[in-house]
Design a protein around this nucleic acid. Structure first.
Length: 204
DNA sequence: AAGGGCGCGAGTTTACATCA
DNA sequence: TTGATGTAAACTCGCGCCCT
């Protein structure tokens, strides 16, 4: 069916352009055309080749391209004869089509990476906010611990346990050690708890 | 190893269509 | 009508691979 339409079109084209695709009409043209550089195979009498493949030709080529992007010479010759084209035209079409395909792929890839990057940036902001929040909580916890230890000292200043100083009670990662170096790694999800740090959760 | 033929990718040129 | 712009077809160049 499509094959029949293509053949009809080929007949029409061959009537319009005797010497199919190797010449363009020189007289009575509706538009002035720039002269094309001669290709290797062109004889001195011929000028440019006909441009724009027909819809059917393109459809058939697209169908073939969909099956396989590479073009073996046997398939090229078969396609060329089926479509009434020069094998060289088929080869060129496939080359250009591969280039377009690659370009489109790159665009898609770029678009995906851009989306991923945007998501990562948002996540980074959320994590930074979380870190700030946790720092605040930590500061509050330190203050609370300080208040409690002062109360304990005041009540039993003479008891044997009174030697329990603030420094001794502090977890090693608090106070003197500071948190500056852990900005990027100290992330505690809101819903989770850390073994051995349950006391922190009391203040959350 | 050398060199010729061939196909391919990348980049460019050319012809044409479309639109403001 | 015309110039700008986009796109497809064709071209050029350089490279790698294969064969002799």
């Amino acid at each position: 069916m499509i094959r029949g339409q293509i053949e009809d079109q080929m007949v029409l084209i061959s009537q319009l352009y005797p010497g199919v695709y190797t010449q363009v009409p020189e007289q009575g043209e509706t538009k002035a055309r720039r002269r094309r550089k001669k290709s290797k195979g062109e004889s001195s009498g011929t000028v440019a080749q006909k441009r724009k493949l027909s819809t059917e030709q393109v459809n058939m080529l697209e169908l073939n391209f969909g099956n396989e992007h590479k073009l073996e010479s046997e398939r090229k010759d078969r396609l060329a004869s089926e479509l009434g084209l020069d094998p060289r035209q088929v080869a060129v079409w496939f080359q250009n089509r591969r280039a377009r395909w690659k370009s489109k792929k790159l665009e898609e890839e770029y678009s995906k990476l851009k989306t991923v990057h945007e998501n990562v940036v948002v996540e980074k902001c959320q994590l930074e906010t979380e870190v700030l929040k946790l720092k605040d909580q930590l500061t509050e916890a330190e203050k609370e611990i300080h208040r409690l230890s002062e109360r304990v000292d005041g009540v039993s200043s003479n008891s044997p346990t009174s030697s329990l100083s603030m420094e001794a009670m502090d977890p090693p990662f608090l106070g003197g050690f500071g948190m500056e170096g852990f900005d990027n790694v100290f992330h505690v999800p809101e819903s989770s708890s850390i073994p051995g740090m349950e006391w922190v959760n009391l203040y959350m």
